[in-house]
Design a protein around this nucleic acid. Sequence first.
DNA 1: TAGCTCCTACTACACTTGTCGGAGGAATCC
DNA 2: GGATTCCTCCGACAAGTGTAGTAGGAGCTA
Lengths: 132, 132
Amino acid sequence: MAKREYELGAAEFQILKVLWDEGPSPVRDVLDQLHKRGRNVAYTTVQTLLTRLEQKGFVVSNKSELAYVFRATLSRDRVRKSRVKSLLSQLYDGAAAPLVLQLIRSERFSEDEVRALQQMIDELDAPGKAQS
Amino acid sequence: MAKREYELGAAEFQILKVLWDEGPSPVRDVLDQLHKRGRNVAYTTVQTLLTRLEQKGFVVSNKSELAYVFRATLSRDRVRKSRVKSLLSQLYDGAAAPLVLQLIRSERFSEDEVRALQQMIDELDAPGKAQS
DNA sequence: TAGCTCCTACTACACTTGTCGGAGGAATCC
DNA sequence: GGATTCCTCCGACAAGTGTAGTAGGAGCTA
């Protein structure tokens, strides 16, 4: 298998999410957050995961007073885009429309969301500025 | 880590895709398809993968004349839904709207697609008696 | 019948991922 | 100053995943 762009396991990914939510944190804080989120792992497990993420370049660490503080180098947005792209290419032949349709069909939207969607789509419809 | 719903590796997944595209096939045909798709693996590799998929219940096999013929038990659609659900919960707090917005913002749509989207969203807007 | 070719059944092996434990240093508590 | 508490560094290990080789049977082929 060729390397995929972001090769993250589920546990590694969850660590990243903590860093996104909480900002740069030392092992201890990440651990506490994971516990709060119902994932009961050992301190050293988190440490190992963070180390691996660092080796892969997905986080960097900085020695502060007491302990190393880890920071995510990938933004959540970047990962979102990458994941969506990969989902599209793997399961939708790269075409976004079927996915959008599926989402609209199977998910519920609030009125505000519907309005926002309408507006965006109307703008798609009228590209330049004056609708042709 | 708790088991995810569909625990498929990338290579296993590609096998499934061949079965979806080509219908039930013996090892040999799957292999040929993979080669056509640029994945040069050995016959026995495909065989192993199919066997594992069968153990996991994602394909079933039937002895035919010459060789076992493997058929996917999961539909592409089912996997799509599951994958989308997991993407939403992992990266979008389970909310579909932000993903839809992102897709609309970053992908290109044909006029027909835009019209279809408009229509679907307009229907959402007027939930007269349809759906719900 | 000896040789190909194709199929199945096993076995193997390296690498990744999730999980920790222990050793040993620094700071803190009494 | 000895015990306790953290932290870091290493090593380990089981399961899962990707990849493939080998053995042995069945059928065609010259």
